[in-house]
Every structure is written in structure tokens, then in C-alpha cells.
């Protein structure tokens, strides 16, 4: 089998100084800027009314009791359970006790929900605006340059992706144009940001997209449109089926076992 000769393209070394390095530096600085913009734009959580806080905290109290049930003795667990179940059932913790049993209000009309959507929008803007700007900048100044070669072979399908803006039929798909270098930077700079800004930074676009898929459980729990009375009923059920085993049961025997005479 004939060996395919390796394509060599003679490039001006100035390409590195005026294309490759500027794009990389701008990508890193944009990430840092995005991180600090996100930090500065983050609004402090709005103060809530006392009954609303009471409703949320008492539900959390049930959850915590369930999670840590085994560290308290059986009588005290029973006492806490009885109190919580009775209060949940009567709706004593509800924000509006007289509205028990009614349907939840429409989330679109709730002003608190709009607040949350604004925050999400801000996060999206912080991601989209720089991306568009840099994409336009690269297109305007650097389109049509072949700047670097990937060190591993690729199939011909990658040609249109890697050589965007370079219309050459016979060039090896390993060669990359400046836009492809930008795309590679988006994916690869994660570790640089981790190093520069700490591991829960807001710089990376990858992480932003991940975050959108699964927002925290806390937001879901007290989100608009969820009927708190239903949550209380579910919590009653959870507490009732919990099997309680006290951790300190038989602790004397376990201690004596470890004593070596």
C-alpha cells in the first residue's frame, strides 16, 4: 500500500503572533470577565414574608427530621413526629391557612416567579452576548486563515466543521481554521478557568449549559405553582413510613468489643 505523503503547508510564523495568541488570550479574558460579571450581577435573594418563610422552614424541618431520625432516641423522635404530623394535617404552617385545599395560583401572575425568570435571563445574556461578539470579531478579522494542524487524523466529515471559511477541496481535514480554534478553546479552557477562578466559577459556557438542565432542588421545592399543602401531605406519609432505629442502641456492647485486654 502506498504511503500517503503528509501534506505540509508553509505558514507565516506571524500567524501565531497575530491570530492564534490573540484568540486564546481573548477567550481566557472573556471567561474571567464573564465570571466577574455574573458575580456582580447576582442579586441578593429577596426578603420573604414571615408566613412564607414559616411554610418553607417547617417543611424543611420535616425533611431534616427524616434524614437525621436515627441520632435521637425513640421517644423524642415519636414526640417530634406527632407534633409535625398534627401540624401538617391541620395546616397550621400554611401561608394562608384558610386557602387550604384550593388550587395553586397561576405561576405567570405571581410576581415572585418573574424575579426568578429575570435572573435566568441575565445568566443567558451573560453567555450569549460575548459569544456573539467574539464570533463576529473572529469572522471579521481572521476568517480564511489556516492556522494550526491537529495532531491526530480525522475523517473527511470534520472538514466542514474544522475548515469553516476555507474553501479548499483537497486539504487534509487535520488543518484548522481560526474559527475552529475558537471552538476548541470553548471546550478546552475549562481547566484553565478552574485553575484561575476556583472550581465553581461562572466562566465556562459548558457549565452554564449544564446548569440549565438541572437547576437545584431547592428552586423546585418552593417554586411557584407547587401546592404547599400537597407537599405537607407527602411529608406526613414519608414520616409515617419511616422505620426508626436508634444509633446508640447497644453501644455498650460495641464499646466493650473494641477494648482489648
Amino acid at each position: 500500500m502506498a504511503q500517503v505523503p503528509v501534506q505540509t503547508i508553509h505558514r507565516d510564523p506571524q500567524l501565531f503572533y497575530w491570530i492564534l495568541i490573540p484568540i486564546t488570550v481573548v477567550m481566557i479574558l472573556t471567561g474571567v470577565l464573564r465570571h466577574y460579571a455574573t458575580v456582580l450581577m447576582a442579586t441578593a435573594p429577596k426578603k420573604q414574608e414571615l408566613p412564607a418563610i414559616k411554610e418553607q422552614r417547617s417543611l424543611l424541618r420535616g425533611v431534616n427530621l427524616r434524614a437525621n431520625a436515627n441520632v435521637i432516641s425513640a421517644p423524642s423522635f415519636q414526640a417530634r413526629k406527632d407534633y409535625l404530623v398534627a401540624a401538617y394535617e391541620s395546616g397550621a404552617f400554611l401561608k394562608e391557612p384558610d386557602k387550604k385545599g384550593q388550587a395553586a395560583p397561576n405561576p405567570m401572575t405571581d410576581p415572585a416567579a418573574m424575579e426568578g425568570m429575570m435572573g435566568m435571563m441575565k445568566g443567558n445574556m451573560a453567555m450569549i452576548v460575548p459569544q456573539t461578539l467574539i464570533m463576529g470579531w473572529i469572522n471579521a478579522f481572521f476568517s480564511g486563515f489556516v492556522i494550526i494542524r491537529l495532531p491526530f487524523p480525522l475523517t473527511i466529515k470534520f472538514k466542514s466543521m474544522l475548515q469553516a471559511g476555507v474553501a479548499t477541496k483537497d486539504m487534509d481535514p487535520q488543518w484548522m481554521s481560526s474559527i475552529s480554534w475558537y471552538v476548541l478553546c470553548i471546550f478546552g479552557l475549562q481547566s484553565v478557568f478552574n485553575y484561575l477562578l476556583g472550581s465553581d466559577n461562572a466562566a465556562s459556557q459548558m457549565q452554564q449549559q449544564m446548569g440549565q438542565m438541572g437547576p437545584g432542588a431547592g428552586a423546585q421545592m418552593f417554586g411557584p405553582g407547587v401546592d404547599p399543602d400537597k407537599q405537607f401531605q407527602a411529608e406526613i406519609e414519608n414520616l409515617n413510613v419511616l422505620a426508626h432505629h436508634y444509633t446508640l442502641e447497644g453501644v455498650e456492647d460495641r464499646l466493650l468489643q473494641t477494648v482489648v485486654v
Binding site: F16, L184, F187, S191
Partner: peptide, 20 residues
């Protein structure tokens, strides 16, 4: 898998700087 993209980036960059 998390490190792979960072590896490819710096690999390409330094390969390009040194060899190409």
C-alpha cells in the same frame, strides 16, 4: 473524560507551536 478536552487543546497548541 473531563480532562480530555483540555488535553486536546494544549496538545494541539504546543504541537502547532513546536512542530508545524
Amino acid at each position: 473524560f473531563e480532562g480530555l478536552s483540555g488535553f486536546v487543546l494544549t496538545w494541539t497548541l504546543f504541537y502547532g507551536l513546536v512542530r508545524a
